[in-house]
Computed example of a mutant assay.
Amino acid sequence: MLDIADDLHRWCAQGRPFAVATVVATSGSAPRRPGAALAVDAEGAAVGSVSGGCVESAVYDLCQEVLAAGDQARPVLRHFGYSDEDAFAVGLSCGGDIDVLVQRIDPAAAPEIAAALAAAASGEAAAVARITGGPAELLGRALLVRPEGAVLGTLGDEVRDATAAAEARSLLAAGRTGTVGIGADGSRCGEPLTLLVETSVPPPRMLVFGAIDFAAALVRAGAFLGYRVTLCDARPVFATPRRFPDADAVVVDWPHRYLAAEADAGRLDARTVVCVLTHDAKFDIPLLEIALRMPLAYVGAMGSRRTHLDRLDRLREAGLRDLDLARLHSPIGLDLGARTPEETALSIAAEIVAHRHGGTGAPLTGAHTPIHHDREPARHRNHPAA
């Protein structure tokens, strides 16, 4: 649901009731992950998707039915799997299975949902936990959890609320969306309840070092993928907003000094991506010496294989261990035969995506590996996990 927060927040601000269908469980080669949503308002307008097209019509009709029931509408949990008779109409042609929870949302009567959507639309950190499995009378109840500990809403029981809030904070800290099981009485045992915890966190950061033409293309690719992109170079004549209009920030500073300052200020996390394109040892080595000691999502450096071997020797001399060096993606990018800045940016972006999701980068044609991998990316409103 938070993946379409911009539209739903606008509907809430206008006081428009809507029905939202949310994927709450998947199996097999399902096209969307838990949290993906399709919403329909009273005028029939639709936003989002639960399956990439396979069952959209059936889910749309279900949303309209729930919405038409008005205030008396009860949440509906519906399973969609492969149908031999008419896969595209009522099943998933991909062969997977999804469970979808459809519920009516009246913004005035669901302040916790409205607040969660407002937080996600503005890029703030928040988590919303909804009951998606258990007694019918509890389905759809929601709890909003803020990182500082504030809670809005209730699942109907104080102990249950406390347990759910703790689970939600854990997923929020990791920037993950997923399902958890608790007991109906709030314990970790007893009659089971399933919670879908959706999280919203600020966009992850991409730091691109080196104000060159390849960097301009990579900045555009990073912005397209939903990263908040910073371009940094020590040379003021090259590091200008005019040359990098797609960057969220252009910084003139020595790369290693800027990275260290951002880390000290707490503005980097385990989702941060660092791409070193400077092609100059006096910039690369001090920067990589710091970056490879940090728990970052990805660290890559441009250069030939000969440059890479020389770089490894210099980093070992600086005290880095082989375990640290193993985290370095160099030469940066996947083997696409790239030549132009745009092709090279695509190569680098593809490697970042593959690394984030646990993909191999190999062609899917003829492969026997899963199309969708289990590694869950950190979610933010411009980059939903899908």
Rank of each mutant, 00 (worst) to 15 (best):
R205Y: 02
T230Q: 11
R188N: 15
V252L: 06
D253W: 01
L268W: 01
D253F: 01
A215C: 02
L225H: 13
P203G: 07
L207K: 03
D233G: 11
A249K: 10
L268M: 06
R235H: 07
R267V: 03
R243D: 09
Y258N: 09
F224D: 11
G190H: 09
G222P: 02
A249P: 05
V201Q: 12
F214K: 03
P245L: 06
E262M: 11
R257Y: 07
Y227Q: 10
A221V: 08
L193Y: 11
G190N: 07
W254H: 13
L195K: 01
P236Y: 04
W254T: 04
C189T: 14
A221Q: 12
L231P: 08
L268E: 04
H256D: 14
A270Q: 10
D185Y: 00
P202I: 02
V197I: 15
R188Y: 14
H256V: 01
T240A: 13
V197K: 02
V208N: 10
G266M: 07
L196A: 10
A247S: 11
A234P: 10
G210Q: 06
P192K: 03
R235T: 01
E262G: 04
E262I: 00
G226Q: 12
D233N: 11
L259Y: 05
D264P: 10
R242H: 14
L231T: 02
A261C: 07
F214V: 04
A215Y: 00
E191K: 12
R235G: 09
D185E: 04
A263H: 14
L225K: 11
S200E: 03
V201T: 15
D233H: 08
L195G: 05
A249W: 00
G222Q: 03
R242T: 12
I212G: 15
V237I: 14
I212S: 14
F244L: 07
Y258E: 14
V229Y: 01
G190L: 08
T194R: 15
G222R: 01
V208T: 08
V219M: 06
C189Q: 13
G226K: 08
